[in-house]
Design a protein around this nucleic acid. Structure first.
Lengths: 141, 141
DNA sequence: CTCGATGCAAAGGTTTTGCACCAGG
DNA sequence: CCTGGTGCAAAACCTTTGCATCGAG
């Protein structure tokens, strides 16, 4: 599990500054109660943590910073905003319903064959993220 | 392979009208030389085919119509616009590089185990679309 | 003729960027 | 200090929607 501190440390190690807004954003991202949040959602939660307004552009730039520090990705799961995904989280799928957008997380362990396939194409399986778009039980074609 | 005619026929069968802009859009989508195009890209190509301007909203509404007719999906592969994916195409993965956005198509046959997994979660494997975001050989972490 | 599709315009949401100011190291 | 982060504002995108008009069936 990535902790708020490990994210902060990653920023510092990458030669970046640690500010109050960034601390709040890292706290939000590291909270296991939060699922995959979009940038506007991160803004809302971080403002509560900090008890002060944080600009959306700051959120995006912080996400970029975390990405450059190698501890986060942002991924598009469907229509609407993209969500933030921590690199150090246990890797998993996202099964997304085409219609209702409901997301199911799947552990990666069932899919060792996939790692082999990825490597065959020169991709690095350890940074893999999955977004599988399909239809859930309640929304047949 | 889906042909331009099969797309047109699908529209007609669904009780929808076939117009000049729609014909041009279907021609573009059915062209195997075209990869997965975003709506703005479809607009550009279709305008050349038709040799007349086509409104972006018309492109979006036509994509919606094809989706309702069951012959197309639109999928978000990464940052930026979503792309159109024909249902009758052979199903495949999209391996997307996090950094450069380069996409590799993978045949589905290697991944029968995935279909089982999806079914176990109540998803319908025949409408599956894959977007796997990772890093390609030229962009290590 | 009738209903659906088109184009135009406007609006909504996400994401990016320029710039002056402030603060972390 | 000095560089990099912040907030504010504006803009760039993608996408959706309302409405009058046009044209397919």
């Amino acid at each position: 599990m990535a902790t708020s501190d490990s994210l902060i440390r990653a920023l510092r190690n990458a030669g970046m500054r640690v500010t109050a807004p960034r601390r709040a954003i890292c706290t939000v991202l590291a909270d296991p109660d939060n699922g995959h949040l979009s940038a506007p959602e991160v803004q809302g939660a971080a403002q509560i943590v900090l008890d002060a307004p944080i600009d959306l552009s700051t959120v995006y730039r912080t996400i970029d910073a975390l990405q450059e520090a190698g501890v986060a990705h942002h991924v598009h799961l469907g229509p609407g905003a993209s969500v933030v995904h921590l690199t150090e989280e246990e890797h998993h799928h996202h099964l997304v319903c085409d219609v209702c957008g409901r997301t199911v997380d799947l552990p990666l362990e069932d899919l060792d064959s996939l790692a082999v396939l990825l490597r065959r194409h020169g991709y690095r399986p350890d940074t893999v993220h999955f977004a599988i778009v399909s239809r859930c039980r309640e929304h047949p074609a």
